[in-house]
Design a protein around this nucleic acid. Structure first.
Lengths: 123, 123
DNA sequence: GGGAGGACTGGCCACCCGGCCAGTTTCGCA
DNA sequence: TGCGAAACTGGCCGGGTGGCCAGTCCTCCC
């Protein structure tokens, strides 16, 4: 591997959709410095795809709500989210309120748990 | 792209090891037909790396902390947890404090997210 | 017997959270 | 051209949260 001392990255595929798995295998198979794991081989990382069936009725969250939700799941406070998204704390609270409403949650912790449960977000 | 009607595959990276994440981002970023997800964006698939070093073992939580953690994941407030466990709110806050410390979390939401990520609790 | 750790409780306090009220702009759609 | 939806902002306020201090019990173990 010449002067490149970094070893190959071994990737395993955990894809439900056969078509997507095939496309990814093709795309990733031709990348130098990267290799797909042999059956049973321990990989450095896995490519996982959540089955679309798990997301029955996406609870119609807006893009902004999704942004806020993602940051909430990181444990960010309203102030941090506001800074991150370049909006005011009030706007964050507005979106959080909508989130609590749509996700039928009693607080931000509950909202993140519900969202993770129904696959809206990935922890 | 010509006759290739297949849309881009959007990949999100969930890698603990910064170095590995960086290498993967570089490698995957130059693959045609494939794109890395923007923050908060919903991806077709995720590249996850469970680094053994990052997961030392179960973080030695006491039974009481596990009780509190489970109720926290249900979105329960300190007052609710106290009632449920027949202890005072002060004791709940004491356990929550230990949880935040052991899970390296900034708040209760972050704590349940971390716990769920490393399999301490099941959502 | 004495030390260590866990579980438990209390007070105090700054800050955060969520809900309420109010308003604005922009966009698409009927 | 109006009308709703989405995004955004503000003030106000009760209650929740988390960090600090303090203490008491109990059990396990050296």
């Amino acid at each position: 591997m010449s002067e490149d001392n970094a070893p190959e990255i071994v990737l395993s595929l955990e894809i439900d959709d056969p078509a997507l798995a095939d496309r990814l295998a093709t795309l990733l198979g031709s990348v130098a410095g990267l290799r797909l794991a042999a059956p049973g081989e321990t990989a450095n990382a896995s490519v996982v795809a959540r089955d679309p069936r798990v997301m029955p009725d996406d609870i119609a969250l807006t893009q902004r709500e999704l942004d806020v939700l993602a940051l909430m799941a990181e444990g960010a406070s309203n102030k941090m989210i506001a800074r991150q998204l370049n909006i005011s704390v009030h706007t964050v609270k507005f979106h959080v309120g909508s989130l609590l409403d749509k996700l039928d949650a009693t607080g931000r912790t509950d909202a993140v748990a519900h969202a993770a449960r129904r696959g809206v977000i990935e922890l």
